[in-house]
Amino acid sequence: MQFTKFFQYAYLVFAGLFLYDAIINWGHNKSYVSLALAGLAVFIFFFRRRFNKKYDNKNDSK
Rank of each mutant, 00 (worst) to 15 (best):
I24P: 01
V13N: 10
Y9R: 07
R49F: 00
F14L: 15
R48H: 10
R49N: 03
L17W: 13
S61K: 13
V13A: 15
L37F: 08
A41C: 15
G16V: 13
R48S: 05
K54T: 00
Y9S: 06
S31I: 00
L35P: 02
M1Q: 11
K58L: 12
R48C: 01
N57S: 06
D60L: 15
F51I: 01
L35H: 03
K53L: 12
R50V: 02
Q2S: 08
H28L: 14
K54Y: 01
K62D: 10
T4I: 12
I24D: 10
S61G: 05
L17C: 15
S61E: 13
Y55N: 04
Q2Y: 05
L37A: 10
S31G: 02
F43P: 00
F7M: 11
A41M: 14
Q8K: 02
F6V: 05
L35F: 12
K62P: 02
K53N: 10
R49E: 01
D56S: 05
F46T: 00
S34E: 14
D56N: 04
A10N: 05
V33P: 03
F45W: 12
Y32I: 06
Y32A: 04
H28C: 09
F51S: 06
Y55D: 09
F47W: 13
V33C: 04
L37M: 15
N52D: 11
K58D: 12
N59G: 04
N52T: 04
D60F: 14
A38L: 05
V42Y: 11
L17K: 12
L17I: 15
F14H: 08
N57V: 00
I23M: 11
D56I: 03
K5N: 10
K62N: 10
H28Y: 14
A10Y: 11
R50I: 02
D60Q: 15
A41S: 15
I23L: 13
F43W: 12
G39K: 04
K54F: 00
D56T: 01
A36H: 00
L35V: 05
Q2D: 05
I23S: 08
F51E: 07
Y32N: 05
W26K: 08
R50Q: 06
N59S: 09
A10F: 14
F7Q: 07
